[in-house]
Nucleic acid binder design. Structure first.
Lengths: 169, 169
DNA sequence: CGCTTGTTTCACAAAATCATGAAGTTAAGA
DNA sequence: TCTTAACTTCATGATTTTGTGAAACAAGCG
């Protein structure tokens, strides 16, 4: 544990968590700064921070934040919102971020699929390599079919967990 | 189509496919050279090439190949094999590469999970951020449970496809 | 209107990544 | 044991990526 009363926030620990987890996401291919912004929001109770707050937490320039949030917005992991009559943008974690992540992954596979189709043409369907790629395409298609069901069952499970944890759905 | 008899290999087309698909994989976070080696093997009928052949196909130095295959071997996407009484290493695409890729992804989530657990400690389970992470961990656990079933069903589907395509299993 | 605050863009510098050639290692075959 | 082929390691230089400060831009608010 830490020097903080049980249940409270351990500031240094949270800071370390942000850097460690963001580091892992970066290793997995995510842009470094985008990963740090994402995790900073994840560790925030309101799941919401302004650009200036992000710059402060992460100790970087506003310019770096600007680039990172543009990316995160594009891939739908966060949302930009501005309260009427304010100049400050707030960045929110999307509520269904895991669903969005999966969706994003599917977009990726769709793009791969179309390139693989061209590859099959170039190789010829009857070659062994052609067959192997045909199987790869079939695998992507299979995953595409399965995912809705998997996510559906996750929603059920999540609702059940929320009930157990005593949270509103 | 191409200038090649139907069913045959279109060399230039294959070359283009290798670069395009490898490029996509690189964009998705894979090391560039590793991606090129992987796709070169994918497009090879025998799914097998020596280091020298890879260097030739991809027009790079043997040193670059050496680094790429080290990575691909580590993450279990290819296998190195040497025929007895020879000095040449062959690199093989793993037969069950998609299964391995999924497995690898799970390893990743396992690592994330343990960092998230530390994060929950630092935040406190009762904070909103703590709860959000608890849900994230639950999502990873859920995926971990679902995957074996998904892959099982894929194997069935694949067997069926092979029968339809007239291939041995 | 213009001042002010918050954000974005852009040119540049710092840092990380990548592929290379050359030297080093290993083991086959003579 | 010596030679040689195949691969690996390592220092280096090139390229790419990343974050910065400064300047431009936008929009509340007086």
């Amino acid at each position: 544990m830490s020097e903080v009363a049980a249940g409270g926030r351990d500031r240094a620990g949270v800071q370390e968590f942000i850097e460690r987890f963001a580091g892992q996401l970066a290793d997995a291919g995510m842009q470094r700064m985008a990963a740090r912004v994402f995790v900073a929001l994840l560790a925030e109770d309101a799941a919401r921070l302004t650009a200036a707050e992000l710059a402060e937490v992460l100790q970087v320039s506003p310019a770096a934040i600007s680039g990172a949030v543009r990316y995160l917005t594009q891939v739908d992991m966060i949302e930009r919102r501005r309260e009427p009559g304010s100049r400050r943008d707030y960045y929110f974690l999307k509520a269904d971020m895991w669903y969005d992540m999966i969706t994003q992954r599917e977009q990726l596979m769709l793009r791969w699929r179309s390139i693989l189709d061209d590859g099959i043409d170039a190789l010829g369907v009857h070659t062994r390599a052609g067959q192997r790629m045909r199987e790869t395409v079939a695998f992507f298609d299979y995953l595409h079919e399965e995912m809705p069901g998997v996510m559906e069952r996750w929603k059920e499970r999540r609702a059940k967990l929320h009930r157990e944890w005593g949270l509103s759905d």
